[in-house]
Nucleic acid binder design. Structure first.
Lengths: 169, 169
DNA sequence: TTAGATGCAAATGGTTTGCATGCGT
DNA sequence: ACGCATGCAAACCATTTGCATCTAA
């Protein structure tokens, strides 16, 4: 379990940092394919072509917040033969195994965050854009509220909605 | 701005507490219809039969979190001739004028909160149920994060996701 | 070879819209 | 009477599903 403390992606206990590819892994265009393959195996997903490339698109560019459609378009641009349905499937599968985190806040479309660790978001009102709230400005709950009987806190989501300042000068 | 510290509903500056009906208002089945009528006028909405009754359903039972469908069903039960489309319209109109607050967190369905003041929610995972986090257990952000240049904080939404405790004993 | 993954298209479910009719002012 | 509000149904959009085909193990 001793993974090198992440460069920018830190995954929670259960999940795996996909960059921990063995030293000799063959990288394709700067992407540790082998690591991805291995990662998928580790989480019990067969490393198929589309999962491999979708994983690459998702995780090779730092933290991102994508919708199914955004990912689909990128995959198409990347010449990957993939269907929208598969993108949805893959996103949910990745989420189930902890590689992604679903953010259910920005309107009708579901956003997926490539950083599955606990952190919060800015939401730009009007545009449907999400920004990570930087860790160093971390939001801390002063007094976690007591959950009702029989329930426990699974997770706390904080969304700071932003609007453009009235007079940008 | 000095409103009596709320019993349970506190409305923010811009909005109006619909219970501030004049003393002599004729109440219909315990509901200050006249107050509702007047409230609707105040916010620039014509007090039509459906808006009146929908408002009554929404606001006469304390704080609630409703979906369009829930409200529609109640309206039907209440023998109000109303269409689902009108329920949607009305919900959005009420939201625009600050009588309601939309909560965009519980899956694909939109929830509307009859308490438009700043407060946060428990979300029961699995069921699509929302609970207010009681004021006295208020969640406070320790260090409100600095928004990026050109933006200001419009609102902070906190959702505490709950799951059933593993062993309820 | 065989279970699992994918592609396509059709189905679904929530929400919105267009237009003719109704109702509040 | 005028104009916004409503009702209905069709349109829309994001997402899911069923099934035949394909592919990784």
């Amino acid at each position: 379990m001793s993974q090198s403390e992440g460069v920018f992606v830190q995954v929670p206990g259960s999940a795996v940092d996909w960059r921990q590819a063995p030293a000799g892994a063959e990288d394709v265009e700067g992407c540790p394919w082998a690591g991805c393959k291995q990662l998928l195996r580790k989480v019990g997903l067969r490393p198929t072509r589309q999962r491999l490339l979708l994983g690459w698109i998702l995780f090779s560019k730092g933290d991102r917040h994508v919708t199914a459609e955004m990912l689909f378009e990128e995959a198409v641009k990347a010449k990957l033969p993939v269907s929208l349905a598969t993108v949805y499937n893959t996103l949910h599968q990745f989420t189930q195994v902890g590689l992604l985190r679903e953010i259910g806040v920005a309107g009708p479309k579901a956003f997926f965050d490539t950083n599955p660790s606990a952190h919060h978001h800015f939401l730009i009102e009007g545009e449907e854009a999400l920004l990570d709230i930087p860790e160093n400005a971390e939001v801390v709950l002063e007094s976690p509220p007591t959950p009702p009987e029989g329930y426990e806190i699974a997770r706390v989501d904080v969304v700071v909605r932003l609007r453009r300042t009235a007079a940008p000068v």
